[in-house]
C-alpha cells in the first residue's frame, strides 16, 4: 500500500495581511507559515493505512525551499519519504497550476492512494485534489470522513451538507480529499523530530505549468466587513449590562 499525501505550507491564517502597492499580491515580508490544517488529518490517515496494510507513505509538498519544514514535520509524524516540487510563491490563487505541478511529480511514483486535505486554510479552493485526480486519470472522492481499504478497493464516507453522509467505493489507485476531524493526528516525539532533520528530501523541478494557467489577478484588496451589528463597547460590566438590557427588552430572558 503506497500512499502519497500532499501537504501544503500555508501563510498563518491568523495574520493581518497587507496588499502590495500594485494591488496584485499581498506583501510577503514578515509572513509566518504553518502546515495546512486538513493536511494533518490526511497525513495521519496515510500513516494509519501503512500501519494496517504495510507499504510506505510519501509526503509531497509544492513550494519554495522553506516548505521543507512541513515535509520534515510530516516525516517526524510517520512519513517514510518526502519530495519537494519547486513552485514559486505567488500562484496560491490558482489550484489548476498547483494541481498540474504536483501531478508531474506524482506521475513518476508507484501509487495506490493519494490523500489531500479537503481544502487549504488560505484559499480554501477545495479543488487541488480533484484537479490532481484528473491529471493522474484516477477516480476520486472529496470531503472524506472514513476510509477503509479492502484488497484493491477503498470504501469511503463523504460528508455532504446537513449532516448527511454518502457511502461510495472506488477501485485503487484513487485520490481522496480528507475532511477535518476524521482521526486524531499524533504528536511527533522528540526523537522522531531529531531523526527527521537528518532525513533527505528529494527535490523535483517540474516543468513550468505556466502554459496551463488561465487565471490572472486583476486586483487584490482588503474586503470591507459589512458590519450591521450594533457594537457594544466599554468596560466588561458596561457591555454586559447593556447586553442584558437588550435581551430583556426583546423578551429573551426567561422570568424567575
Amino acid at each position: 500500500m503506497n500512499v502519497v499525501v500532499c501537504v501544503k505550507q500555508v501563510a498563518n491564517p491568523e495574520l493581518q495581511y497587507r496588499i502590495r502597492d500594485d494591488a496584485l499580491d499581498i506583501v510577503r515580508d514578515n509572513l509566518t507559515f504553518q502546515v495546512n490544517g486538513p493536511d494533518e488529518y490526511a497525513l495521519e490517515e496515510a500513516v494509519r493505512l501503512r500501519e494496517a496494510h504495510g507499504g510506505k507513505v510519501t509526503a509531497i509538498a509544492a513550494g519554495p525551499e522553506r516548505v521543507t519544514e512541513v515535509l520534515r514535520q510530516a516525516m517526524a509524524k510517520g512519513a517514510d519519504e518526502a519530495i519537494r516540487v519547486d513552485l514559486p510563491d505567488g500562484r496560491e490563487f490558482d489550484p489548476s497550476y498547483t494541481g498540474q505541478t504536483l501531478a508531474q511529480a506524482i506521475q513518476a511514483l508507484d501509487v495506490d492512494l493519494v490523500l489531500c486535505g479537503v481544502q487549504s486554510d488560505d484559499y480554501a479552493h477545495g479543488a487541488t485534489g480533484p484537479i490532481l485526480a484528473s491529471h493522474l486519470g484516477i477516480p476520486h472522492a472529496s470531503v472524506v470522513t472514513r476510509v477503509e481499504v479492502e484488497d484493491d478497493r477503498v470504501r469511503v464516507n463523504r460528508e455532504l451538507e446537513g449532516g448527511l453522509e454518502e457511502r461510495v467505493t472506488l477501485p485503487l489507485p484513487a485520490l481522496l480529499t480528507i475532511q477535518f476531524g476524521i482521526n486524531e493526528p499524533r504528536f511527533a516525539s522528540v526523537a522522531a523530530i531529531l531523526k527527521a532533520t537528518r532525513q533527505s528530501i528529494q527535490e523535483v523541478t517540474a516543468a513550468s505549468a505556466e502554459g496551463a494557467s488561465r487565471l490572472t489577478v486583476r486586483r487584490m484588496y482588503i474586503p470591507e466587513v459589512t458590519q450591521q451589528a450594533e457594537m457594544l463597547e466599554g468596560s466588561v460590566d458596561e457591555v454586559a449590562r447593556r447586553l442584558a438590557a437588550i435581551l430583556r427588552e426583546k423578551g429573551l430572558v426567561p422570568e424567575g
Binding site: 501563510a11 491564517p13 491568523e14 495574520l15 493581518q16 495581511y17 496588499i19 499581498i26 496560491e92 490563487f93 486554510d121 488560505d122 484559499y123 489577478v217 486586483r219 487584490m220 484588496y221 482588503i222 474586503p223
Partner: peptide, 8 residues
C-alpha cells in the same frame, strides 16, 4: 483568500 482577509 488568506482566511477571508483578502479579496482577489
Amino acid at each position: 483568500g488568506y482566511n477571508g482577509k483578502v479579496a482577489v
